[in-house]
């Protein structure tokens, strides 16, 4: 089963993402900030990571950088969830190594189609 790590500091978004993905048959692990996500990612090999950008302790951009430096996550799809549709933020994510982005607000359908795009 495909494992997805969903990282967001907002419980409602976390719940929505995990509910959506679980209903679609994914195995979902959630984390509330970059710190926690990194720990989980190191212990469990996830197939995909979706992360928010603005979070306490460790933000999403830093998380992407750290994940890319791990051999297990070098080529894995990592998506960032961002409300900033500005190119600047997207590019910041890209240069950190993110595969792509999903612009908030997103709906469950968009989330699922986007996920399918980056999974084999």
């Amino acid at each position: 089963m495909t494992s997805v790590l969903a990282v967001d500091d907002s419980p409602s978004i976390r719940q929505m993402v995990s509910y959506t993905l679980e209903s679609a048959g994914y195995n979902v692990v959630v984390a509330c900030d970059g710190d926690e996500a990194l720990k989980i990612a190191k212990n469990t090999n996830m197939n995909l990571v979706i992360t928010d950008v603005n979070m306490p302790n460790m933000d999403g951009i830093t998380l992407v950088k750290k994940l890319r430096s791990l051999s297990d996550y070098k080529f894995k799809p990592i998506l960032i969830l961002t409300t900033e549709s500005s190119m600047e933020k997207k590019m910041q994510g890209k240069s950190a190594g993110a595969t792509g982005w999903i612009v908030k607000p997103f709906n469950p359908d968009l989330l699922l189609t986007t996920l399918k795009k980056v999974l084999d």
């Binding site: 500091d9 907002s10 978004i13 929505m16 603005n54 409300t83």
Partner: peptide, 23 residues
């Protein structure tokens, strides 16, 4: 930053759950 994030989360959630006036 913490203040900013709080506003940011409300905005993001508001938009995601269809409360556009809030977001």
């Amino acid at each position: 930053n913490a203040i900013f994030r709080a506003a940011h989360s409300i905005k993001g959630g508001g938009a995601s759950f269809g409360f556009t006036d809030i977001s």
